[in-house]
Nucleic acid binder design. Structure first.
Length: 586
DNA sequence: GCCGTTTTCGGCCCGACTGTTTTCAGTCG
């Protein structure tokens, strides 16, 4: 009885349940719109930014977009009882294990149903042995080629590490764009897909090239020396896998159609569906090729702006294109003016050789000046983080002298702050006593250990830090590492509430392995009036060039310059830090 | 199953590519 209480569903887990239901219904052959409804609800749960448990207790589940009466009832049943009668019954009709074979490229719901009904296959392992035994080729609609594709697909599945971190995908895509741009007939190149929208991880790379004649471009692309598998090769679209197991597809369109092509390939799918609905209201059909009028004539768009203009919208930045209200905002003329890299005047979370950084304080300052910053906080680790060479109290005081000395040399060019990335210990206490923290210019608190503690405990630790009057910023709040480590199981609603109450800023850590806060919670935070801080956590000069990833994450969270303390002038920032100091000593 | 300043019922986006096919079904984004 007690056990049922322990089974607690978060947004992600609920979304997974509804995605599974959608998969099973699709294999079962249910009308497609029903499965789409479940997927839509799952997406919206993931993108909610608020704990569904909170909405259930305090509001109405049907306020969640895509959640009507039926799905609301299912959410409630899951939250109350820990299981779902509907899913149990569905499992009796369609084996749940069939869902795993949908992961195989070229295997969708129809094929899954075929393998299940005609060959008794219910698991991925069974599918593989059947394919290797040559017993799939004689099924209706199948042949030797399809059978081989399934075998290679399963092999690719095994070697592919699901989604690609942005920090890996981005530089590789730039390389490929350079390659494509060097082809003579190519007039323009662009990246599309979730990479252009700057999601923290991407599934594959979507590339576009503008050229009158696509043939030579496609030939060059599929002939790239690092290509290990040509998945498809057409005149408009080709798809390949590279030696690093990253898949990429390339669209080639003539320049006069490049705008619709780029818009289409950027997505998201959900955003595009909305745009096509808008087009239909004007009796236009929108595709990657053009707008099509009823009389069969086309309206071409060379620029992406033209696509939005025809729909009566301002251009919408790619980072917003997730169907999270951006189209309604565009229609109402209230799109946010998103933050840009150039708005940032300070980096408030960096490391030097005093702990685990690679550069001296002087070198870090030089790197910051080179990048146009006005304020640099050196925030080396505190003592208990021994692996990172955390500073004892004595060393911390010695470091102050060096910072002062470097400041003297630099004069007015940049303002150095002595800070600390102070460890939130596993018992929730901070790693330096209050009388040490009070002498620091800025205090950043963070979790590095005990991230696997139970939700209650790890949340409490973070709340302790937020409530400490000396703490100014919480760095990388969840502690996630992409792609390997999930963040701590935090009660984010409680964390955000405390941050709002105590005026503590929450960091969007710009390192592509972190991007923490994520876009969803960043957006929720600014809705609650919480200040954000975008920092590089730089351990070297080149780390400072990763700032744009943090800015992109903020942009995905609808963040404007005013929301981010790093955009403030040095004067304003220092006043803010000092005012918190006054509050401390009061 | 969801949703509505055109609708509470009847809609719910579009095209490319591949393989197995004599004109189309399935998958994918």
């Amino acid at each position: 009885m007690e056990m049922a209480q322990e089974k607690r569903f978060n947004n992600q887990q609920l979304a997974d349940v509804f995605d599974t239901i959608a998969d099973l219904l699709e294999i079962k052959g249910e009308v497609i719109y029903k499965t789409l409804a479940y997927r839509k609800a799952a997406d919206n749960l993931r993108n909610l930014g608020r704990d569904v448990n909170e909405i259930w207790r305090e509001g109405d589940l049907t306020d969640i977009p895509g959640v009507g009466k039926a799905i609301a009832n299912k959410i409630e049943e899951l939250l109350t009882t820990g299981h779902l009668d509907f899913l149990d019954k569905l499992n009796e009709e369609v084996p749940t294990t069939l869902v795993e074979i949908l992961q195989v490229p070229d295997v969708g719901p129809k094929k899954a149903a075929l393998f299940w009904h005609d060959a008794g296959i219910t698991t991925l392992a069974e599918l593989e042995s059947a394919a290797r035994a040559g017993s799939l080729r004689d099924l209706p609609g199948m042949g030797i080629k399809s059978e081989t594709r399934i075998i290679t697909g399963i092999e690719a599945l095994a070697r592919r590490t699901d989604r690609i971190p942005l920090g890996t995908a981005w530089p590789f895509a730039q390389e490929l764009l350079g390659f494509l741009d060097s082809i003579e007939s190519v007039q323009a190149v662009e990246v599309g897909g979730s990479l252009r929208r700057m999601k923290a991880t991407v599934g594959d790379l979507d590339l576009l090239a503008a050229a009158e004649d696509s043939g030579p471009v496609m030939d060059a692309f599929v002939g790239h020396p690092d290509v290990i598998d040509m998945i498809s090769r057409g005149d408009t679209k080709s798809s390949v896998e590279f030696a690093n197991n990253i898949r990429a597809q390339l669209w080639v369109h003539p320049p006069e159609r490049f705008g619709t092509a780029l818009q289409y390939a950027t997505g998201s799918k959900e955003h595009n569906v909305r745009l096509r609905e808008l087009a239909l209201k004007q009796d236009l059909s929108l595709s990657d090729q053009a707008f099509l009028r009823k009389d069969g004539s086309e309206v071409l768009c060379a620029e992406e702006e033209d696509v939005y203009e025809i729909l009566g919208l301002p251009w919408i930045p790619p980072e917003l294109r997730e169907d999270r209200g951006e189209i309604q905002a565009a229609q109402a003329g209230v799109l946010p003016v998103l933050i840009e890299v150039g708005d940032l005047l300070s980096d408030l979370h960096t490391h030097s050789t005093w702990s685990d950084g690679k550069l001296s304080i002087q070198e870090m300052a030089d790197a910051a000046i080179e990048r146009g910053l006005k304020v640099l906080a050196i925030t080396d680790h505190s003592a208990s983080l021994g692996v990172a060479g955390g500073l004892t109290v004595r060393r911390l005081k010695e470091q102050r002298q060096e910072i002062d000395a470097v400041q003297d040399v630099l004069g007015e060019t940049i303002h150095l702050l002595q800070g600390s990335e102070v460890e939130i210990r596993s018992d929730g206490s901070l790693d330096y006593p209050d009388d040490i923290l009070i002498d620091l210019d800025i205090v950043i608190a963070s979790l590095h250990t005990g991230l696997r503690q139970p939700r209650e405990k790890v949340t409490q630790r973070l709340l302790n830090a937020i409530r400490n009057p000396h703490v100014d910023v919480i760095a990388h709040p969840t502690g996630r590492i992409i792609p390997n480590r999930e963040g701590a199981d935090l009660d984010m609603a409680a964390v955000l509430e405390a941050a709002a109450e105590h005026g503590v800023a929450l960091e969007i850590n710009a390192h592509p392995a972190r991007l923490d806060l994520d876009d969803i919670y960043a957006r929720r935070a600014i809705e609650m009036g919480i200040n954000l801080s975008i920092n590089t956590d730089a351990h070297s000069a080149s780390d400072m060039d990763l700032l744009h990833f943090g800015v992109a994450t903020a942009r995905r969270g609808w963040v404007t310059p005013e929301n981010v303390i790093n955009t403030w002038t040095a004067e304003r920032l220092l006043v803010w830090l000092k005012s918190r100091g006054v509050a401390r000593s009061a």
